[in-house]
Amino acid sequence: MADRRFLTIYWRDMLRYVRFRALLFSSLVQPALWLAFFGIAISSSFDALGAQLPVVPGIPRIGYLTYMCAGVIAMTTLFTSLFGGMSLLFDKNWGLLREVMAAPMSRSNIVLGIGLSGITKSCIQAGIILVFGLLLGVKFFAGYDPLHTIIAIVGILVFVSIFALGFVFLSAAIAITMESPEGMQGVMTLLTMPIFFASNALYPTQAFPPALQAVSVVNPLTHLVTGIRYFAIGPEFSAIGQTFSYSVADIAISFGVLCLFAALTFVLALYRVRNARVT
């Protein structure tokens, strides 16, 4: 059974996070750069196209930068979490994993500790993107009163956290038997592509061909983006010529999918870490 020693694993993982200054810096600046360069460049052309489309009365129209900001938060969480298990690989090859595995404690502590560290990193990044996005002109929380804004931020961070857990666990399950960081990098790239592009992060999925749409429906990233947009923009809005509307039930389902995904990957990671042999 897990006990509070998962906090020890967490403490040590965060120690590394703040100690690698270059890595810390790039992980914080990179999503901001995405938003600044890709976001502004593409939104200026998309918004020019969208301006010709008729306005649906009663539904707020949002710019592309606001639309994609949710996608950038989700993407950053995905990347960060997928590499969250990497510390297991490094520890196995060059570090402390043998020491951790020989300790008289449940290995669920290892999985939980890494998961918590993944949540922390993702929430810090999401916060930075939110602040930076608002500075760049992202229209999040438009017309919200302070309480509503706080609830929205909490909602976003809860979604980000559950999603992060799912992918950190998946990452840990893969990393524990990987031999090299290069191999890990390869697998991560393979995973990232379909997850990122078969989602609603950058564009709506309504026009996808059926097969791709099916992927997007089960894709946890779609559900994270949906959640973020619901909390940050509202239940109904239009962007790039499409109308989006989310009911509370939709959001509950998205949340349920993320929870289910995290639960499954937790079981997988725990199984893999328990059965790992490090000698």
Binding site: T8, W11, R12, W94, L96, E99, A103, P104
Partner: peptide
Amino acid sequence: TLDRDMTVAETLEFHGRLY
């Protein structure tokens, strides 16, 4: 079996907590 980026004291602290 050490983490290059931890200090001597942190290494021992980590072990003590694990146990």
